[in-house]
């Protein structure tokens, strides 16, 4: 196969497989995955104010809110986190602390 054919074969493959199929294949090959944990923070929340962004859970994108950074905000009325909150809070609040403060 020439170079263009190989590049096309790779592109065609990835256009035809779903993320789940890729993950299954990678698991077969020895990659380890774990389920994304979801945490819900009641909203409105005294520590969470400002504009709530809509970002899918499990994605390491952070949004800045007054006093904290949170990753994986998905819901309008509640904040669903794809990761434990303690990993993303700029002020080191754990998930339990955030719940307590709610």
């Amino acid at each position: 196969m020439n170079k263009e054919d190989i590049l096309q074969a790779i592109k065609d493959h990835f256009n035809s497989v779903t993320p789940e199929e890729v993950i299954n294949s990678l698991e077969e090959l020895g990659c380890e995955f774990e389920d994304v944990k979801s945490y819900v923070i009641p909203y409105p929340h005294p520590l969470v104010s400002g504009e709530v962004a809509f970002v899918a859970s499990g994605v390491s994108e952070s949004i800045k809110m007054p006093g904290m950074n949170i990753c994986g905000v998905t819901a309008r009325e509640s904040i669903v986190l794809g990761e434990p909150v303690k990993n993303y809070c700029s002020d080191d609040k754990t998930y339990d602390q955030l719940l307590d403060a709610a």
């Binding site: 990678l26 774990e34 499990g58 994605v59």
Partner: peptide, 16 residues
């Protein structure tokens, strides 16, 4: 291409 697939928003699994 692998990274694009496994880091997509719809995936409910994350890499260890």
């Amino acid at each position: 291409s692998l990274a694009e697939k496994i880091y997509t928003n719809s995936v409910q699994k994350k890499l260890k």
